[in-house]
Amino acid sequence: MLLNAVIIILREVLEAALIISVFLALSQLLNRNLWWMLVALVLGFGGAYVYAVNLGQVSMMAGGTGQEIVNACLHSLIFLCLLLFMISVPHQQHVSWRLLNLVTIILAVITAIVREGSEIILYINGFIGIPDLLSPVLMGGAVGAGIGLSVGVFFYYLLVNMRRSHGIWLGYLILLLIGGSMVAQAVEFMIQADYISATTPIWDSSHWISERSAVGQLLYALVGYEATPAPQQAAAYFISIGVLIAAAVISYTIRGRTP
């Protein structure tokens, strides 16, 4: 039970911690204050609780595929936030762009916490009635959360203590990977709900790096690794990264032209 709890909590915490730490670091590198973090955390956990409580109802919607649709929407929303974030960063001197930038950060963090937090709440909730299992689950949860938060702390300080320009670029790179993985997961949910027809996997790398292994789990959290992705998933992954890069480059170019 314990190892399982570690893995579940770690996976969810790691994904959320990664997004949060990168945004925190970028906020600091872009000279913003950090009060928004508190707002986002509170709203995120509130939203996660509401989603967890209503999950049964949500699942039953849309012919039993409500959950996939909501999850796909949440992942797409995070991608959209990242996109708008990338676009708005070069225009920080305008108040309205600055506001948009802040809103995208807050919204992305809230959405990430809603998505990952609701699973944690459902999971822990299931063991409240089973005292024998509750203590190993809580212990495992503590270990998993500890590892996930520690990685987040390291990422944050790594980005903040790097040379400023390097930190911003690495932060961007991580956001690109997160964006790609968000869209790929959204596509996976649409396949699962049969809104997109599944085809045979484009590759099978489960012999090299199994998704079950620790490395596979870590890669999944960092770059959205899949051992057997559908072609649509892989395409969505790379196209969305391309879109993010293009948006950021265009936005920078426009700022360069209009002083």
Partner: peptide, 14 residues
């Protein structure tokens, strides 16, 4: 992992 499926099923539901 092999089927690439992941879905939370709440208690007493389908």
């Amino acid at each position: 992992y092999e089927l690439n499926r992941e879905k939370v099923i709440a208690g007493n539901s389908e």
